[in-house]
């Protein structure tokens, strides 16, 4: 069984990593030559995905926030109600939720980067 301290270490590291990665992500937008609002135009957004380091940052945000967010949800739900059935359901639902979000998000990033 995974120790709670290991899970919480991951929670703190992914939380901190999310802050850094989201900051980098926002800096990406602010530093484009066309300016911030132009960077939100459809063509520019799609073009961003062609930039491998930009996509990589997006993927990392996806993974860290999904793990952190679903573990945060697990913590909240465990404190809300107790009972062995509930607790194992919460555990599996949160693992499944994180995996589903990561798979679906990765698919979106891949599709956007392959769009002509």
């Amino acid at each position: 069984m995974v120790r709670e301290s290991s899970i919480m270490k991951i929670h703190y590291y992914t939380g901190l990593a999310a802050i850094v990665l989201v900051a980098i992500h926002i800096l990406f937008r602010l530093t484009v030559p066309e300016g911030y609002s132009a960077s939100l135009e459809y063509e520019n957004v799609i073009a961003n995905y062609k930039n491998i380091s930009y996509s990589l940052v997006l993927e990392l945000i996806l993974v860290t926030v999904a793990i952190h967010g679903f573990n945060g949800l697990r913590v909240i739900l465990l404190e809300l109600r107790q009972g062995d059935g509930w607790e194992s359901a919460v555990k599996w639902l949160c693992i499944a939720g994180a995996v589903a979000v990561i798979v679906y998000g990765t698919r979106t990033i891949l599709l956007a980067s392959m769009m002509g």
Partner: peptide, 9 residues
Amino acid sequence: VDDRHGVWR
């Protein structure tokens, strides 16, 4: 104390 309902809560 290193439990789901332990010190981390």
